[in-house]
Amino acid sequence: MDVLINVFVGLHIIGIASLLGGFLTQMKAMGAGTARFTPAMLHGALTMLVTGVLLVGFNEMDGSPVNNVKVGVKLAVLFVILALVYVKRDEERVEKALFGAVGGLTVVNIFIAVLWH
Score class of each variant (00 low, 15 high):
residue 1 M to F: 10
residue 4 L to E: 08
residue 5 I to N: 00
residue 6 N to A: 10
residue 10 G to Q: 03
residue 10 G to Y: 02
residue 14 I to T: 08
residue 14 I to D: 05
residue 14 I to L: 12
residue 15 G to A: 02
residue 16 I to T: 10
residue 17 A to R: 11
residue 17 A to G: 13
residue 21 G to V: 04
residue 21 G to I: 09
residue 22 G to P: 10
residue 23 F to Y: 15
residue 24 L to A: 15
residue 27 M to E: 04
residue 30 M to T: 08
residue 31 G to Y: 01
residue 34 T to C: 02
residue 34 T to W: 03
residue 37 F to I: 08
residue 38 T to K: 09
residue 41 M to S: 02
residue 45 A to D: 05
residue 47 T to F: 04
residue 47 T to C: 06
residue 50 V to C: 02
residue 51 T to N: 02
residue 52 G to N: 05
residue 54 L to I: 15
residue 55 L to T: 06
residue 56 V to N: 09
residue 58 F to A: 13
residue 61 M to C: 07
residue 63 G to Y: 01
residue 64 S to T: 08
residue 65 P to Y: 12
residue 67 N to I: 13
residue 68 N to V: 12
residue 71 V to F: 11
residue 72 G to R: 10
residue 72 G to C: 07
residue 74 K to M: 15
residue 74 K to L: 04
residue 75 L to N: 00
residue 75 L to G: 10
residue 76 A to I: 06
residue 81 I to V: 13
residue 81 I to H: 01
residue 84 L to P: 02
residue 86 Y to Q: 11
residue 86 Y to G: 08
residue 89 R to L: 03
residue 93 R to D: 01
residue 95 E to G: 15
residue 96 K to M: 03
residue 100 G to D: 01
residue 102 V to H: 07
residue 103 G to H: 03
residue 105 L to H: 03
residue 106 T to P: 01
residue 108 V to Q: 00
residue 110 I to M: 07
residue 111 F to H: 04
residue 112 I to P: 04
residue 112 I to M: 14
residue 113 A to N: 00
residue 116 W to S: 06
residue 117 H to A: 11
